[in-house]
Nucleic acid binder design. Sequence first.
DNA 1: TATTGTTATACTCTATAACTATA
DNA 2: TATAGTTATAGAGTATAACAATA
Lengths: 148, 148
Amino acid sequence: MDDHTGYLIIKVAGMAVPAFERALVPLGLNTRQVRVLGFLHGESLSQAELCARTGLDRTTMVAVLDELEQLGHATRERSKSDRRKHVVRITRNGKAAYAKATKKLLRAQEELLQPLAPAERAQLHTLLSRLFDASQACAPEPAAEAVS
Amino acid sequence: MDDHTGYLIIKVAGMAVPAFERALVPLGLNTRQVRVLGFLHGESLSQAELCARTGLDRTTMVAVLDELEQLGHATRERSKSDRRKHVVRITRNGKAAYAKATKKLLRAQEELLQPLAPAERAQLHTLLSRLFDASQACAPEPAAEAVS
DNA sequence: TATTGTTATACTCTATAACTATA
DNA sequence: TATAGTTATAGAGTATAACAATA
């Protein structure tokens, strides 16, 4: 069973996940927090919209935003147009942290892919993209809108 | 961040894991059980040796073997040479179940890799092998011996 | 004293349901 | 009635420690 491609994918991912988590430890962040910050980089979103984009459920999102707020990387305030919603914004500190995190993650990825030549990395990327895109084509999600 | 290779690997693995688990549902098995059965296919091993090969810890192994024993796929008996050890053997039923499971997993893999042409699948396999082997070369584990 | 298998415990993740406030 | 956010709770999964039997 160990020589199957599907098993290899899972094994390599099993190496990647802790590598990325480790890379963020010096910043006091985890990958979930960085992922949420990434979606806030360009626009402010409600928690429900963040859930739709990240795939996290709303109870998890509450915890992640509690953490990001405490770190000073994001803020929550009531929406003026719909007072049920919280507008989540990334702070200046949050943007700086996200930039640092991106660099750390890229370096971790470099290390992970180091056994491959540049052309091979591009090949791998293309092949994985094809697999991922094919699965996304099956279950299309409507994009969420930004909020004021 | 979504366009990074490391993230793609994790995403594709996130598709593969539930696909494999789903493929085994009709057999009443999970991937962990099948993985353990695979190591028993050729030889009988103690629980500690199974742990060394599968990477599962010994408390988890107890639970997995309880399940396999109840399903009639494996047996435990005390080793004659060292009465602390349990010799774990796969049964005839267990071998049959493992054969069926392997077919199911292969079919699930076929489906997962269906977006790629045969040559591309081979390419993907080679690239992932290189990444996996490189990581294994860093942390070599001594192989466990069989037991009577 | 160390090792094997076992049990008990705790801790993390995740999923569900219930509650509030707003619409 | 439905939605957004929150809280509480229960379940699976995993890791740690303690224990009995054996070496």
